[in-house]
Design a protein around this nucleic acid. Structure first.
Lengths: 187, 187
DNA sequence: GACGACATACCGACTGGTTGGTATGTTTAG
DNA sequence: CTAAACATACCAACCAGTCGGTATGTCGTC
């Protein structure tokens, strides 16, 4: 999607229509406003991201939940190579633009991010159940932390116009997760 | 600054002029374009952030570099309370909007972020020299990781409209740093 | 199966307002 | 007197959103 590359505000309805090959009349027939498109796009993004990350890749069938989690991190790190429109999180970008101007868009973005984090927390929970974890860290808070590191890595990668520093940051995340699970007490 | 709250694209030159109490003529007398204002704002942000984080707070005079680093993390976490315009990183937000449309703005944002990270790396380097660190982690890469976690935490806080998850993420970062330095081999 | 009544999908010219930027005039300081 | 600092009025381009119109069903009724 164009909006993913350019941002929500920077992409006009005319551009969207031209790229999608539809008329402006058709656009406003299906969406009452540009904002409504943003909400729909966020919902679709939730579905697509879930597929792309939790369904399609082969490593999602790794049995060991901790190994699966680490493979997940590796996968996200691998995505940092290549152009920003390949790794950028659509809702992460949109929420920064819209949280001040549109609560509707903010909520839609939040819903998408939360859905991802809650899905990821399931795997983390399984890993904790099997291996235990240090300091009684909760699955959901670690999940949000992973999300935060990734979002931050995207920003660094865009600013640097290079994936190097971002990749290193995700490596730090991976090391942290390993450390949390090694010697973690099973309760 | 208004741009910090609303974002670069979402803030018009007229608004900026009204808020600053100057006429549009005066604005374009000082800046050739809106983009040039963005660059100047990024430069000013570098200075202000350095003061706000590395000069003014009392804890910058803590002698132990590791304790100082951890106090720094606590400080950033504390900033997450309160409204977004209080904790938001101006250049972090701007780079997301502009990296696709203006390389000039992207470079200006990068310069600001890099300046912060390099300054922080000095403290980290001192901590490593005194205590050693696990896995031969480099000061500058840890510095960028800290930056990434903070930027990511800002996004989460904005999406959730609450600092809770973001605060927890920074706590994870703090735990990670502690773990890196505990039992680190001094070379 | 023929007919009108109504609904849905779609088109693209148009509008009112906003945008970044300019042209031109006025004030102020050295 | 001059040049920089500022103000005012203005512009063309662009923006999201509207509106009258058309083409294509798809019902119910006789």
């Amino acid at each position: 999607m164009l909006v993913r590359k350019q941002g929500y505000a920077a992409t006009s309805v005319d551009e969207i229509c031209a790229a999608a090959g539809v008329s402006k009349g058709a656009f406003f027939h299906h969406f009452a406003s540009k904002e409504e498109l943003g909400v729909a796009a966020a919902e679709q993004w939730t579905v697509r991201a879930d597929e792309l990350i939790f369904t399609l890749p082969p490593w999602v069938r790794i049995e060991d939940p901790l190994e699966r989690l680490l493979a997940h991190i590796d996968f996200r790190m691998f995505m940092l190579e290549g152009p920003p429109e390949g790794f950028t999180c659509f809702v992460g970008t949109m929420v920064q633009e819209s949280f001040a101007s549109s609560d509707t868009l903010r909520r839609a973005s939040d819903a998408s991010i939360s859905a991802y984090c809650e899905r990821l927390a399931v795997d983390i929970e399984a890993a904790i159940a099997r291996y235990g974890i240090r300091d009684g860290v909760s699955a959901i808070s670690l999940s949000y932390h992973i999300q935060a590191v990734l979002q931050g890595a995207f920003i660094i990668a865009k600013a640097k116009n290079s994936p190097k520093e971002a990749r290193d940051s995700v490596l730090h995340l991976k090391r942290y997760i390993k450390m949390l699970f090694e010697r973690g007490e099973t309760e």
